[in-house]
């Protein structure tokens, strides 16, 4: 459980440290009046949706770290047979990096209110994300055809499970992505999609990071 403990120690450590600092020198019984107005607007000066997303990322980080911990623990047992990763994963990784880059470009454009660039960058980011998903399916196919079936060995099973859980998170992102595009078609004001583009960009980077960790894990074992 070491991997999980490290991730959780970082998250919980952050939460605990921040909370303790917020509460350290405060003597609530001695103060009166509507103090701390900037507190009341939220301790972080960001939109609630962003806080929601960040909390969700912490949940997802916990989930993936637990899978990684389980992977390490299961690996110790004698029946584990190392399986070679399909080469196409490298190409997929490149796709996902590009998707992330274009999402960032879309985000930069939305801040500057450049509707045309937002649209085109979003479309390209989506295209590469779909390419990644297709490539992952291809990798499954190849893995399966080379005789590495799900029930054959725990190493194979982990390969399928890790990629599937990651893909499920991407699917969730694509759903928001498609809604953003849809909104862009029907409304004139680009400002209205600003939050969702910004948040999706963060989400895409996060999923890229997760994928890099998972890929490194698969490659190294």
């Amino acid at each position: 459980m070491t991997a999980t403990l490290i991730v959780l120690a970082v998250i919980m450590g952050g939460v605990v440290f921040w909370l303790i600092r917020q509460t350290l020198n405060v003597q609530p019984w001695a103060e009166e009046g509507p103090i701390g107005q900037d507190h009341a607007s939220g301790p972080f000066s960001v939109q609630p949706a962003k806080v929601g997303l960040i909390v969700f990322l912490a949940v997802a980080a916990s989930l993936f770290s637990l899978f990684v911990s389980a992977y390490f623990q299961r690996m110790e047992f004698g029946d584990w047979k190392i399986a070679p990763e399909p080469f196409v994963l490298w190409i997929n990784t490149a796709f996902l990096i590009l998707a992330s880059v274009f999402y960032q470009l879309a985000r930069n454009a939305v801040i500057k209110n450049q509707t045309a660039q937002v649209k085109s960058n979003l479309l390209i980011a989506g295209f590469f994300t779909f390419a990644f998903m297709g490539g992952q399916l291809w990798a499954w196919q190849e893995f399966h055809n080379s005789g590495y079936v799900l029930s054959g060995n725990p190493a194979n099973a982990f390969f399928y499970v890790l990629t599937a859980v990651h893909a499920a998170h991407i699917l969730g992102g694509l759903w928001v992505w498609s809604r953003t595009l849809f909104k862009l078609q029907s409304i004139v004001e680009t400002r209205k999609v600003r939050t969702s583009v910004e948040l999706c960009a963060i989400y895409w980077h996060f999923l890229l990071l997760i994928w890099l960790v998972l890929f490194a894990l698969l490659l190294s074992t």
Binding site: V26, P28, G33, V51
Partner: peptide, 20 residues
């Protein structure tokens, strides 16, 4: 849970500091 946390951290009214 996303709601409970975000509400308690972001939607408190004026004067409602964490320690209140």
């Amino acid at each position: 849970g996303l709601n409970y946390i975000t509400t308690a951290f972001q939607a408190r009214t004026r004067g409602m500091t964490l320690m209140r």
